[in-house]
Amino acid sequence: MRGIAKIALLAGLGLAAGLMPVLAQSRPDPMRMSAMPGAAPSPDDPMQALRTPDPGEGDGPAASEEFGGLPDAPGAEDTYYQCVACHSTEIIKQQRITDARWDDLWQWMVEEQGMYEPDAETKQVILTYLKTHFSSEL
């Protein structure tokens, strides 16, 4: 979904598959991760700043009251009705994960959890919505 992280992810895949060499600038560097802004710090609780940063924190669409607090954006309605058949929106709103994890979660929900699979177009709308608003990718 989002460019820079895509490159890092591909580099990670390359490493995992033993496909060398990897581009120098995408070499994994834990110090770079530490230099990136974390979650908004709290003077009352040092654990807060250690949490997974939220790339969209504060600048995303407003929460939709009609759709369980999901960001009010294209795809919210389809996503809401698809998901609340089983679980509330609270679990969705907690996620900040990669596109690949969303694809895997979708497959898991269909195959293991008995989720009703909508038509391809609706699936695309929902997955795009999830990958846009609940992503760990910058």
């Binding site: 992280a5 654990m47 949490r51 997974t52 679990i91 907690q94 900040r96 994960i97 994890r101 760990s136």
Partner: peptide, 15 residues
């Protein structure tokens, strides 16, 4: 789980 980066799917338990 809430402290892993990139994030991991599931409930974002802290401590």
């Amino acid at each position: 789980r809430a402290f892993f980066n990139p994030g991991a799917s599931g409930n974002q338990w802290t401590t």
